[in-house]
Structures are given as C-alpha cells and as structure tokens.
Write a protein that binds this DNA or RNA. Sequence first.
DNA 1: GAAACAATTTAACGATTATTGAAATATGGA
DNA 2: TCCATATTTCAATAATCGTTAAATTGTTTC
Lengths: 111, 111
Amino acid sequence: MESKLAVVALGALAHETRLQIFRLLVRAGSAGLSVGKIAEALAIEANGRLTFHLKELVVAGLASSRQEGRFVFYSTDYVAMNELLRYLTEDCCGGLGCQDIVESCDAEHCA
Amino acid sequence: MESKLAVVALGALAHETRLQIFRLLVRAGSAGLSVGKIAEALAIEANGRLTFHLKELVVAGLASSRQEGRFVFYSTDYVAMNELLRYLTEDCCGGLGCQDIVESCDAEHCA
DNA sequence: GAAACAATTTAACGATTATTGAAATATGGA
DNA sequence: TCCATATTTCAATAATCGTTAAATTGTTTC
C-alpha cells in the first residue's frame, strides 16, 4: 500500500460519523446496507451530508456502492481494510514475531 | 475503545509525516527513537513542526515519550495500537470467523 | 557556577483544506 | 404523474498545515 492511499483512508475514518458507518459496514458483511438502513442504524438523517460521508469512504477505497432498484447499497472493501491494517503494523518491532497480524476478514472469507 | 478516542487516533495517523513517524516507531520497538533520529530517518528537519506531529501522536495515545539526558525518546504504545485495530474490525461480518484479528504486537510481546 | 552549545518546544502568522446546512436535482417504482 | 430514495451544488464556517523565529531544557567546558 502506498503512503498517500493510507493517509486518505485514515482521514476518511477520522470522523465520528464515517467511523460509525465504517464499523457498521464491517459488521454487515459483503452484502452491505442501503443508505436508508445506514441512516436508521446510526439514528441520523439520510440527507446530503450522509451521502458526502459515504462518498468519502468510497473515494478512500474503504467501501464500494452498488445500485439495486432505487436503493444504493454500500459495503466494506475488506481487502483495502486489511491492506491498511497491515500497512500500519508492517515490520512491527523489526519483524520479531509480530508479523502476519491481519490474516482474516478478507473478501472471500467474509462473503 | 471509545469512539472519540478512535477518531483522535485515526486523525493523528491521517497525515503523511505522522504516519511515517508512527510506522517508524512501530518498527523501532519499545526502545523507541530520539527526535533527532526520527528526523534523520525520515529526512526531515527536527523543528517545531516535527514536535507538533510527535505531540499529536502522544495526545492520541498512540505513542509516549521519555527523556534521557538531553534527548527525548518516542515509542509506540502497542496496546493502544491494537485497541484501535480491534475497534476498527470489531464484530467483523457479524462475528462469523473474523474475530481475533489482532493478537500480537502488544507491549510485552514486542519489548 | 556561568557561559556556550545542542536538542527540543512554544508561539504567531497566513494559506490550504474539510465540514456543514439548505435547496435543487436526478433516478427508479407504483 | 407522484412519491420515495439518493445525490449534487454552493456558500459559509471551522479546522488543520507549514514556515519562521524565539524560548526552553539539559549537557559540557572552562
């Protein structure tokens, strides 16, 4: 993972609402959730601001969206998530027994 | 981990220089590195900006500092790091086989 | 023990970027 | 067409960034 990508991803997560959205999507699995369901789960309005935050997560590569009828579903990109976690802990303690931290939660595993 | 703590920690990491500092400290282990060494390793100046970034990491709980002679050493708080990673991936996919992602890299393990 | 030096911190400034709310605009389904 | 869902636009507000310069802390030397 490149440094700038990680910065963008971390910046996307460094926001109260977006962090809750992300954690919600992580729990939701690959199926994802519609914008309305996300708003309902977090007790916020499904307005322009929510769209803005969702887009930030997508631009950061942490989530993706797909349209189904008149609903738009958002879901976590588990591969990107794991790349980010691995980037943060890369070569931990000089590589003395601290590698391979993140080995689950990839797309296929969580499908 | 509380939500606001995570936001602060992520915000601290969401910066090119601070992210590199953090990754450098993660590699360095519990012994840590002096401000001068950090500046040298990242090829940046040991000026006010660097101090500001280091402080951000400390305030965010991701690093700690100790004075040794006229040098100040900064080191990763591995417990906080793991709490953050765990918070991000908590109950991944509804808890279906995606838990216990981060189990190494804690303070004692990496000492 | 005081002056000189190195390492680190604090403070001030303008410039850039992120966040918000409100209103208008698509898009799909009954 | 009409309604529900979701997105876009835009201007105002707020937060963050980097540079520079001055101040502080600890060490050494005379």
